[in-house]
């Protein structure tokens, strides 16, 4: 909750143009690479290429439409919600930290096992979102993943690999 940009980027539409141009790029890529999808000689229908062509063309056209629309000043309202304050702008620090935690979680999930990785993950996310009561943070970060883990493995009988702690719990 520190830096906010007051969304000058949203107002200028630069970000959305990049996004829409990305759609055009993906659409063109689909059009080109759909030619490479092999068509088995036994196929008597329109084959596996037709839909990719259609979707690729659609993506490219809609992307172009959006680029033009945004350049001409068309802006949509960002999504509102009961727990959202759009006036303060986007906190990129929060988002960046969260992204780093997400990547870390994906990388650590297998080596550490579900329980340990999730404890770190939960604690990290909660801390990033502003929880500063250390004792409470520590307690919940351990108890909640543990309860979820036990609920799924013992309660619902679903196997969840537990890496380092496999032998313990």
């Amino acid at each position: 909750m520190s830096v906010s940009d007051n969304d000058t980027d949203r107002a200028s539409g630069r970000g959305e143009i990049v996004l829409a141009a990305g759609l055009v790029g993906v659409g063109l890529y689909m059009l080109l690479s759909a030619q490479g999808i092999p068509v088995p000689p036994t196929d008597h229908g329109p084959g596996p290429r037709v839909f990719p062509y259609a979707v690729g063309a659609g993506l490219a056209l809609v992307g172009l439409w959006l680029v033009v629309a945004v350049l001409r000043g068309d802006r949509a309202e960002a999504e509102a919600g009961e727990d959202i304050d759009l006036d303060t702008g986007t906190s990129w620090t929060t988002l960046g930290l969260l992204a780093a935690i997400l990547v870390g979680y994906v990388l650590l999930l297998e080596p550490l096992g579900y329980l340990l990785a999730t404890i770190l993950f939960f604690g990290g996310v909660a801390w990033t979102l502003g929880s500063r009561n250390w004792r409470l943070l520590l307690l919940i970060s351990i108890v909640l993943p543990l309860v979820v883990f036990l609920l799924f493995t013992r309660g619902l009988g679903i196997y969840v690999p537990n890496g380092l702690l496999q032998a313990v719990i």
């Binding site: 919600g81 727990d83 959202i84 988002l95 502003g130």
Partner: peptide, 12 residues
């Protein structure tokens, strides 16, 4: 998507 969106715009 929603959790990230809310996280970046927490109502204070």
């Amino acid at each position: 998507g929603e959790a990230l969106w809310v996280a970046a715009h927490l109502r204070r």
